[in-house]
Write a protein that binds this DNA or RNA. Structure first.
Length: 712
DNA sequence: CCACTTATCT
DNA sequence: GAGATAAGTG
């Protein structure tokens, strides 16, 4: 039999030749490296356009052998080609020609004793699989060559097996003639983080609902270095991924080991690349909200700060107990990081040399700080933006959690506050370095989190489309997402609980937000708006009122009595802010005036007497069993290294002369949800500001006192 | 038949 | 448990 060789100069010509000569071509011999596309890409293209044709890949780069075989090359021939090889290629071609250019060449070759396969030429296991597939499908295609003589019979399952799954032992009469197994086992696709990341990118690109295997595969193939994947590979992975999402959606973060992120710590890490995507489930979302005081104070929780400060102010870590005014954050059972136990200290990998006495605290001594202060660094506190703003020292709270290893964490373990990159496959908490693709980022400093990931408290982390942003500093989150505690502005139509102005309701921002009410912002809000507990006076304007502005810029009187604009004719009467003014945006509910969180966790009655009346003199204090309760909450041993402190022990009123008197405590908890029964609470008597001011009480001194007391 | 999802197997 | 593969579906 005669064999004709058609030589072409490049892949595109090969393809065009195939178009016209498809029926006359039985075997393709290609180089690996070629202009335009490599040999495997060419093969892929051929597969798509012309069906399976045996392709032999040649290259001097023997590193490409494995890839070639994995990608379905018939065999790989290292260059330089030897005479021997040529003859074998010839034999192969001849064999195929003889048997028709069906894909079913594998067994034929092996049967054909004449044909000896060169050593480097390894039969691709996949061929056997293709063979099986073809068999099962009982092809009725008209092309006679698609069915070989050796395997012409279609073993129909005659419909009876329709509702039956396959047997565990597939040999029950299935294979009329089971093909010889290839010598090499088909290698499994390893969904590495990198690969999964690309998978996520594809999902992201198409949208989760529209991402189907084929589209995903196409998208992934646009990026170089993606190993050859079949649609089935992707489909399988997609199935697993969806299973994961479902699980997370159903259970929220409880899907994580032992019910919380911090428990992951002791788990070392979450396995499975699937774990790198947390859809903002309802509970998670709610949890986030619960974590913030609507009243005031840019503060605790995610979203840090220090890097924005050019001061040398020592970094302070974890002011969690300080957060006592925000009961919901510490008592909130589902709050991220507080839901179960704290990390086990023995898991921490500190590598820290204690500095000499006069070295002072530095950014690099998180471990020491944590231990010395007893401020048991909590995972939940990934990098705060601190309330030290009250002292004009903005951003000097911790931005990394207190588990600040100075050495790289171990492979496969999560990274908390490390200064070095965490390892592949691990999540990153408060690290200074970027986390790895496909992983969530919690409080990292310079961690651009990856697509498909939510961003928690990262510093310069532009989070990706379709993800929510929690507490990031420079993180413009994407349209349609809510933004919590971020530093810069979020996108329109979002609620922003952050540091910068957003378009909608603003809580605890550092900058003014236009057009909306402002709670606890550090900067004045815009004219015509109400202001709650901001640090600066809100703007003069007709319908604004400012509650409890703890301004260090202006005197407090004016903070309660903002000056009308020059062109104002009359001073507007004070106006009690209404919750209706809040323009909350909930991802699920859309715009809503209803507070989406349960405020019953707030234990204090924030009513105060009346506007202008003398403030109550009772300092609010923590419940007597507060620390104990917390420690129990977190399964801490009372006398262990990890303990909560009662923050009120930390400072004295002398140091904090600007301490505001606490509101009178009553047993009633005001129901601040207007849609619920409001009962007898006169809105005019609600002074939200007091809470703020209590909250904002000289944190600087407080922190110092902690350090001073505890470091000796 | 194809591509997708789901079920099952390895 | 990850990934492959068969079965079911439109």
């Amino acid at each position: 039999m005669e064999i004709t060789v058609i030589a072409v100069k490049d892949p595109s010509e090969a393809l065009s030749t195939l178009k016209t000569e498809r029926n006359n071509i039985d075997l393709i011999l290609t180089d690996y490296y070629m202009p335009g596309m490599n040999g495997l890409q060419l093969k892929r293209q051929i597969d798509q356009e012309f069906g399976n044709l045996p392709v032999i890949v040649m290259s001097s780069d023997t590193n490409k052998e494995q890839e070639s075989l994995t990608c379905g090359a018939m065999c790989f021939i290292p260059k330089p080609i030897e005479n021997d090889d040529l003859s074998k290629i010839y034999q192969l071609a001849l064999t195929y020609k003889r048997n028709g250019k069906s894909i079913l060449y594998t067994e034929n070759i092996q049967k054909d004793k004449d044909v000896s396969v060169p050593q480097q030429i390894q039969l691709l296991p996949a061929q056997a699989n293709v063979l099986k597939t073809k068999k099962k499908k009982c092809s009725s295609r008209s092309d006679p060559r698609s069915v070989t003589s050796t395997n012409g019979s279609c073993h129909s399952t005659d419909g009876s097996g329709k509702d039956r799954k396959r047997n565990s032992n597939g040999s029950s009469g299935d294979d009329v003639e089971s093909p010889p197994q290839p010598t090499k086992k088909k290698s499994k696709i390893q969904w590495s983080d990198d690969l999964h990341f690309k998978f996520l990118q594809a999902i992201n690109h198409h949208g989760l609902d529209k991402a189907v295997p084929k589209k995903i595969l196409e998208f992934m193939n646009t990026t170089p270095d993606v190993p050859y994947l079949t649609r089935e590979n992707v489909a399988s992975h997609l199935q697993k991924y969806r299973q994961f999402l479902r699980k997370v959606a159903n259970q929220g973060l409880s899907v994580l080991p032992n019910g919380g992120i911090d428990s992951m710590f002791s788990q070392a890490h979450i396995r499975a690349p699937y774990c790198s995507y947390y859809p903002p489930s309802a509970s998670w979302y709610e949890t986030s909200l619960n974590n913030r005081s609507i009243f005031s104070k840019p503060r605790q929780a995610l979203g840090q700060s220090r890097l924005l400060s050019n001061t040398r102010e020592p970094v302070r870590f974890n002011q969690s107990p300080y957060n006592y005014m925000n009961r919901s954050s510490t008592y909130e059972p589902r709050r991220i990081g507080s839901s179960s136990s704290l990390p086990i200290i023995s898991n921490l990998n500190f590598s820290y040399q204690q500095p000499s006495q006069n070295e002072g605290r530095s950014f690099f001594e998180p471990a020491l700080m944590a231990n010395k202060t007893g401020q048991s660094s909590q995972v939940l506190e990934f990098g705060q933006q601190g309330v030290s703003a009250t002292n004009g020292n903005n951003f000097n709270n911790n931005m990394i959690s207190s588990y600040g290893s100075l050495v790289p964490n171990q492979l496969g373990t999560n990274s908390y506050g490390s200064l070095v990159p965490n390892q592949l496959g691990t999540n990153s908490y408060g690290s200074l370095t970027p986390n790895q693709p496909g992983l969530s980022s919690h409080g990292s400093l310079i961690t651009p989190n990856q697509p498909g990931m939510s961003s928690y408290g990262s510093l310069v982390t532009p989070n990706q489309p379709g993800t929510s942003s929690y507490g990031s500093l420079l993180t413009p989150n994407q349209p349609g997402m809510s933004s919590f505690e971020i530093l810069n502005s979020s996108q329109p139509r979002q609620t922003n609980h952050g540091l910068t102005s957003n378009q909608l309701g603003s809580f605890g921002n550092l900058t003014p937000n236009p057009g909306l009410s402002s709670h606890g912002s550090l900067a004045p809000n815009q004219p015509g708006l109400s202001s709650y507990g901001s640090l600066t006076p809100n703007q003069p304007g007709p319908s604004q009122f400012s509650y409890g502005v703890q301004s260090f810029l202006n005197n407090e009187n004016t903070s309660y009595q903002p000056q009308p604009p020059a062109n104002a004719t009359t001073q507007p009467p004070p106006e009690v802010p209404q919750l209706e003014n809040l323009n909350l945006y909930d991802e699920n509910l859309g715009s809503t005036n209803e507070l989406p969180w349960d405020i019953s966790n707030f234990l204090f009655d924030h009513n105060k007497q009346q506007q202008g009346e003398a403030a109550p003199t009772t300092n609010s204090d923590l419940p007597a069993n507060f620390s104990t309760e917390l420690n129990q909450n977190f399964s801490l041993e009372e006398d262990g290294d990890w303990t909560f402190v009662n923050v009120n022990q930390g400072h004295s009123n002398v140091e904090t002369s600007n301490t505001f008197a606490a509101p009178e405590m009553t047993s009633s908890v005001p129901n601040m949800n207007p849609k619920h029964a409001q009962e007898q609470v006169d809105p005019e008597f609600i002074d939200w500001a007091l809470l703020d001011q209590q909250d904002l009480v000289n944190e600087f001194d407080f922190t110092n006192s902690l350090f001073d007391n505890d470091m000796n």
